[in-house]
Nucleic acid binder design. Structure first.
Length: 339
DNA sequence: AGCTCTTCCTGAAAGC
DNA sequence: TGCTTTCAGGAAGAGC
């Protein structure tokens, strides 16, 4: 599942292949099957494919970047006519891609057929920066579960900002915020750490994997209330989030489900996970079995010994009274929260 | 206002 | 063996 390190890896792998190239055409396989506004794309796109096509066709890719988990592709119209009367056709614009759970944005040889879940195919023209990139004639967006989002913003010429920022609710990334500011923000929130780390308006870029891994490294229980952290704990969490993300980026991300970067390469950080999806396995630090609980509807993995903390009473009720004893290792299926 | 829960979606894996 | 159920999760929106 693409979180900040995976998205950063996609961006880095695509940038040298895309910058400087033009978008000649946008092909949308579902249009042929299901008409001009296919139901399967209603959530993925915020307007009919024809509108997106109109906005990307005949543009040059000026930059490829990232904000949080959002990929940002800056487009400049080729025929910039300084038309004062109707500025929008010539205005720079930004293609935003969020990969959701299973989204993939990959460069492909022109001959590669679209997979069953390829929703968008951008046909590239112009000369890539390097000769070896020339064989990539297509940019595919595929997404099995269709939790991803693709949208386009046209940057207002009147605006001083270089790019449209439809992401105003997005919080700072862990690497872009000072420890003191991070601690101050934590003190203001009376919610569980795990839920808070997943909240993109609090910090952006962390998802389920790196939230769990950050809490483990900081030695903090996922159900701990943010405002109750001691200053040293807040600092530790800030540092661990930065370190985990940095290391994961260096490893090319974590390939858990079917994640690959823009050139189809897997990441390797999953072999360094301490807790994520290691339920029942021994903690790398103390050998205590890793536990899994559900927090805010998300599976949450932690080491009960390395991440001590009192679980609020209301959250403990889980099993039927009869089973209320045993230390016989609890299984990991969702309990009380169900239904 | 601030949280938490539910919904969307498919395919792999578990359950029967 | 084969059908059914469960589970995974980002983020919007509903509900409390």
């Amino acid at each position: 599942m693409p979180e900040l390190p995976e998205v950063e890896s996609v961006v880095r792998s695509l940038r040298p292949l895309l910058v400087g190239r033009t978008i000649e055409e946008l092909m949308v396989p579902a249009e042929r099957r299901a008409g001009e506004w296919p139901a399967t794309l209603r959530r993925l796109l915020d307007s009919p494919p024809a509108r997106l096509r109109e906005q990307v066709r005949g543009t040059r890719i000026a930059a490829v970047g990232r904000i949080g988990k959002n990929i940002q592709i800056s487009l400049v119209p080729l025929a910039a006519t300084g038309d004062a009367e109707n500025a929008s056709p010539a205005a720079p614009r930004t293609l935003w891609v969020h990969l959701g759970m299973t989204g993939r944005l990959t460069s492909e040889d022109s001959e590669v057929p679209a997979s069953k879940h390829t929703h968008l195919i951008f046909v590239l023209g112009g000369a890539p920066a390097t000769a070896s990139a020339a064989r990539f004639g297509w940019l595919h967006f595929a997404d099995i579960r269709r939790f991803g989002r693709v949208r386009l913003t046209v940057d207002s010429p009147a605006s001083a900002a270089p790019h449209g920022r439809p992401l105003s609710k997005l919080g700072p990334e862990p690497m872009d915020i000072a420890a003191e500011e991070f601690a101050r923000r934590l003190r203001a929130r009376r919610t569980r750490l795990k839920a808070l780390l997943l909240d993109q308006s609090f910090v952006s870029g962390l998802g389920n994997i790196y939230a769990d891994e950050s809490l483990f490294r900081a030695g903090l229980h996922p159900l701990k209330i943010a405002a109750t952290l001691k200053p040293a704990q807040a600092t530790a969490l800030h540092a661990s989030a930065q370190t985990v993300l940095r290391e994961a980026i260096a490893a090319g991300g974590s390939s858990i489900s079917d994640y690959v970067d823009g050139q189809g390469r897997q990441g390797w950080f999953q072999i360094h996970h301490n807790v994520y999806q290691r339920t029942g396995e021994p903690c790398h630090s103390c050998a205590t079995p890793i536990r899994k609980i559900v927090v805010g509807g998300r599976s949450t993995h932690f080491c009960p010994r390395c991440q001590p903390g009192r679980v609020p009473r209301v959250l403990k009720r889980a099993t039927k009274p009869r089973a209320a004893q045993s230390a016989v290792k609890r299984d990991s299926r969702p309990k009380g929260a169900r239904r």
